[in-house]
Design a protein around this nucleic acid. Structure first.
Lengths: 149, 149
DNA sequence: GAATATAGACGAATAATTATTATTTAGCAA
DNA sequence: TTGCTAAATAATAATTATTCGTCTATATTC
């Protein structure tokens, strides 16, 4: 039973062509214990007792590898830098994961009332927004031609 | 008529207790011309011809002042650092603008089909997420007691 | 118009992340 | 097994984005 998680991890790695390393296993095991939304620094601190010589850069690379492989998700990947919206019109945004470009999407408002219903008491909601993320037309065209070059 | 924007800006500033400065006016005027989602660096480059001695730090401070006053919006303010979600369950997030804490919100999925309908052709949507932003219970309680200290 | 508070310029500092390079390790084949 | 090759790691430097501190300049208030 103690092996179940490790075996599951090995299987996942095979599927995704990730090498199974001790560091990755320990990081994965710690991640699976966490039910909040840690940042890389926190993950680093959590694994250090078991991996005293690990470096923060390795944690970053491992987390990115896990995200790319779909083992974990990233909460609202940001845009590299602060982005502002001069006009106050409410709409959704499409954010390109590759070039970070933001495209306005005209959509109906989300059901704000239903969303707010799930918010704990004492929380003050100031904004609600829906984002779509993926690859924009330009980047999709580029990777297509690159794939056929 | 050329004065309309300037007058409107002055009025806004009075309402929000912001001093009307030349730098702020120029930044505001440029922002109102922009229909994309510039970052501070881009705003800086845009105003430099008119304000050769402005510093990037001033642009940051001004943008923050404008956001706080509600003159402009920020597109998905980020969390200071990368945040991950170990478990793959889909849900929404409440993000505290003060302490950056992320709280899971159990909600129904947004109408993904309707959202995707507004996406330009050639764009590949990989994720759709809804975020609520505001002040979490802890921070709200703190500012309440601070306000009455 | 003078006093006071706020804003700006400049440079340095900090935080988050990525790149570099040498070393180690995993995955695979003989 | 053993050795080869590609990938992963550790350590550190570099980059990028953002903020801070200090001094000067400007706006607001009287």
């Amino acid at each position: 039973m103690g092996e179940t998680l490790e075996q599951a991890f090995q299987k996942l790695c095979r599927e995704k062509n990730l090498a199974v390393t001790h560091q990755r296993l320990v990081i994965y095991r710690e991640l699976m214990k966490m039910h909040d939304h840690p940042n890389p620094e926190q993950v680093y601190e959590r694994v250090r007792p078991e991996l005293p010589s690990i470096s923060l850069a390795t944690v970053y690379k491992t987390l990115h590898a896990f995200v790319a492989a779909g083992l974990i998700c990233q909460v609202s990947p940001h845009h590299g830098s602060m982005r502002i919206e001069p006009q106050g019109e409410p709409h959704s945004h499409f954010i390109c994961l590759r070039c970070h470009d933001i495209t306005d999407i005209a959509t109906g408002d989300p059901d704000v009332a239903a969303l707010k219903a799930g918010v704990p008491a004492g929380y003050q909601v100031e904004q609600v927004s829906t984002e779509l993320r993926g690859i924009c037309g330009r980047c999709a065209a580029e990777s297509f031609s690159a794939g056929h070059a």
